[in-house]
C-alpha cells in the first residue's frame, strides 16, 4: 500500500493535519499566528545548516525553530514589541538561510521543495518521521491540555491553580518547533502557518467547546489534505498550495454559515 506515492503523500498530509489541529487551536486562541509563521520561516536556516553539516533536516529544523522561538520568548518584554522582534528574527533567519544555501556548492538543492513542500516525494522514512513527530506533538498537548487551556484563558487563574504559565508556554513552543520540522516536507516553510491556523479558524463556528474545536480542526485539516492532493493530481497543480486552498475554501464556507446563523 505504501508503494503508491499518492498514498504516502495522503498519509503525510493527514499526519501533519493531526498535529497541527490541537496546536493550531492554541495558536488561534493565544493570537500566536505571527509567532508560528516566524518560527516556520526560521526553519529554512535549519535546513541550510543540516545540508551543510550533513545531519538530518528534521533535527536541524527542530533545533533552529526551537532556538528562534526561545529567543523571542526570552527577548519579549525587554524593550521590543513581540511583532517587531518576530519580524527581525524571522526574516533575518530566512534571509541567512537562503544565503547559506547558496554557499553549498556541489549539492544541487531544489529550494522550492523546502519553501513550498514536496509532498509527492515523501518516502517511507519521511512518513515515519512525520507520524512520529505528530504523535509526539499530540501526546504532549494532550498531556498538558487542561493546564495549557487554563493558562491560555488567564495566567493569573493558572497561577492560582498551581500551574506555571511560563512552563506551558514552553510546551507549546516545543510542539511548534516539532510541527514546523515535520511539516516542511509536506507544505514547506512558507505555508506551515496556514496548516496551523486555517483548519482551526474554520472549525471555530462549528464548535461549542475547545475540545470540539481541536477535533473539528483535525477533521477539516485531514480532509483538506486528501482533497487537496486529489485536486492537485487531477488539475496538475502544486500539491502543498492546493491543500491550503481547500482548507481556505472550508474556512470561507464555515464563516458564511456562521454569518447566516447570526
Amino acid at each position: 500500500m505504501l508503494d503508491d506515492f499518492m498514498t504516502r503523500a495522503a498519509l503525510a498530509g493527514v499526519g501533519v493535519a493531526l498535529a497541527a489541529a490541537p496546536l493550531g487551536s492554541f495558536v488561534v486562541w493565544r493570537r500566536m499566528a505571527y509567532f508560528g509563521d516566524a518560527t516556520a520561516h526560521a526553519a529554512i536556516l535549519g535546513v541550510a545548516l543540516s545540508l551543510a553539516l550533513q545531519i538530518s533536516i528534521f533535527a536541524g529544523a527542530v533545533a533552529v525553530a526551537l532556538a528562534m522561538a526561545l529567543t523571542v520568548t526570552v527577548l519579549t518584554g525587554r524593550g521590543y514589541a513581540m511583532d517587531t522582534l518576530l519580524g527581525v528574527l524571522a526574516h533575518s533567519a530566512l534571509a541567512f538561510g537562503l544565503v547559506a544555501v547558496s554557499f553549498l556548492s556541489g549539492i544541487r538543492i531544489d529550494l522550492m521543495a523546502y519553501l513550498f513542500g514536496d509532498i509527492l516525494a515523501v518516502s517511507r522514512g519521511d512518513l515515519a518521521v512525520i507520524w512520529g513527530g505528530a504523535a509526539l506533538v499530540v501526546g504532549l498537548i494532550g498531556w498538558r491540555w487542561s493546564a495549557l487551556l487554563t493558562s491560555t484563558i488567564s495566567s493569573e487563574l493558572a497561577y492560582a491553580s498551581g500551574i506555571d504559565p511560563k512552563r506551558e508556554q514552553l510546551v507549546l513552543t516545543l510542539a511548534l518547533a516539532v510541527t514546523v520540522a515535520v511539516a516542511i516536507k509536506v507544505v514547506g516553510v512558507l505555508l506551515i502557518a496556514a496548516m496551523l491556523i486555517i483548519p482551526a479558524a474554520a472549525a471555530r463556528p462549528l464548535s461549542r467547546t475547545p475540545e470540539q474545536m481541536a477535533l473539528t480542526a483535525a477533521i477539516i485539516g485531514s480532509a483538506s489534505a486528501v482533497i487537496g492532493l486529489q485536486s492537485a493530481y487531477t488539475l496538475d497543480t502544486p500539491a502543498g498550495p492546493s491543500i491550503v486552498c481547500v482548507a481556505a475554501l472550508v474556512f470561507l464556507g464555515t464563516s458564511v454559515l456562521q454569518s447566516l446563523r447570526s
Binding site: 486562541w29 470540539q212 474545536m213
Partner: peptide
Amino acid sequence: MDPTLPITVERFLRLP
C-alpha cells in the same frame, strides 16, 4: 475571553 475560544460555562468551571 478571546472570542475565538469556544467554551461553555461548565467546561470553564471544570478547568483545570
